[in-house]
Simulated assay, not measured.
Amino acid sequence: MKIKISRTNVSPVRLNVEVKSQGKLGDRPVAFILPGGPGADHTPYLSYACLQGVADLVFHDPRGCGQSNKDNPAGYTLNTYIDDVESIRQALSLDKIIVIGKSYGSMCALGYALRYPDNVEKLVLSAGAPSYRFPDTAKRNLKRKGTPEQIKVCEKLWAGKFSNRDELLTYFQLTQPLYSVRVKQQKSPDLIYKSKQFSYEVLNEGFKNDFWHFDYEAQLPKVTCPTLILAGRHDWINDVSHAEFMAARIPYSRLHVFENASHAMEVDAAEEYFQTIADFITL
């Protein structure tokens, strides 16, 4: 379905939303799955459909991504993403929701829980970070773990200077081994598909702007809902230290570190990863 988002402070757009429910939406717990990137649509997150046994699921393509409308680049912000999630919740006439964010989606999920605390039943922060300090640890990890080619291609990432999807595909091809301890570097059909679905324009805006100044660290004690924090021990871009920092400051939180996983925990430790989330939802 397409949901029209029309607020006075942003351009009106239609967002692509996919609902997976058993019966009437809202009769069971409802979990929103927030894509990362920035620039990803919902399709790489369809593996989360295995959680349907414990909750109804709401997937969406953020503005500028997938089948949602494009927008002025000024609209591709963390704040807009957060408020778009709230607009979807309202459009679906839902009360409290479970918010599950992965990577950049985790940053948005944290921001949502802080801005709309009364609307969040539970919060899952996966492979995330609470502030602009994450690129500094990522750069240190890259210097330690990365090849010269990987270090060079990441210069475009830090600067938000991908010119087209081909450049983004090259980035994914070269850095795949950093994101997963299981996936070997290869030119796979799945990788090509991912790059075609990924919005390099939205990715660029994140690294040009939001990622250098957003900061939720001082507000972490204000997160009032039960929170599950997930991290891969070998995550290069959102270092495990950021998960530990959040777990030490969010009052009702628990931390689960996957010892044999990098950023892509849902690939490196799939069974344990999804079972941990399912158990948290059913508590």
Rank of each mutant, 00 (worst) to 15 (best):
V183E: 13
F32P: 02
F162D: 04
V19G: 02
E259Y: 10
F32W: 06
V13Y: 03
I3D: 11
G105H: 03
Q52Y: 01
D118R: 11
G101P: 13
L114F: 06
Q275G: 09
D95T: 07
K145G: 08
L125F: 09
L203M: 15
E217I: 06
L15I: 03
D166P: 03
A269W: 02
Y116I: 10
A278Y: 08
Q173L: 14
E86L: 04
A270R: 03
K194N: 10
S188P: 12
R7K: 11
E272W: 00
P189Y: 02
R7D: 14
A159C: 03
D215P: 02
A40G: 00
H234C: 02
S188L: 11
L283Q: 14
T276M: 00
V240R: 15
L230F: 01
V99K: 01
F211M: 08
Y252T: 13
N119G: 05
V58L: 05
G160A: 03
R89L: 01
L78N: 05
D41R: 02
V153P: 04
T137C: 00
P148T: 09
I277D: 09
R28V: 11
S11C: 07
K187C: 00
A218P: 06
H213T: 15
T282E: 11
P38I: 03
S87A: 13
Q173D: 04
Y179N: 14
R63P: 03
V153R: 10
A243Q: 09
C154P: 05
H263C: 00
G232Q: 11
P135S: 14
S241N: 10
L92T: 06
E86C: 05
L203P: 05
Y252K: 15
I98K: 08
M265L: 11
V223R: 08
G128L: 07
L94G: 08
D215H: 06
T137Q: 14
A159M: 05
F280C: 09
K161P: 04
D95R: 03
N141S: 12
G160Y: 11
L178K: 11
N204T: 01
S253G: 06
Q186D: 14
R165Q: 13
H42P: 00
Y132M: 09
R63D: 06
V240T: 13
V30Y: 15
Q185I: 01
S87F: 00
V124H: 02
L46A: 02
D83Y: 04
F214R: 02
G105W: 08
N238S: 09
N238L: 07
L142D: 00
S126G: 12
G105K: 10
I281F: 13
Y81D: 08
I5Q: 03
C154A: 12
P73C: 06
L51R: 05
K143I: 03
V30T: 13
N164F: 04
D61A: 07
L169M: 11
F274G: 06
P44A: 12
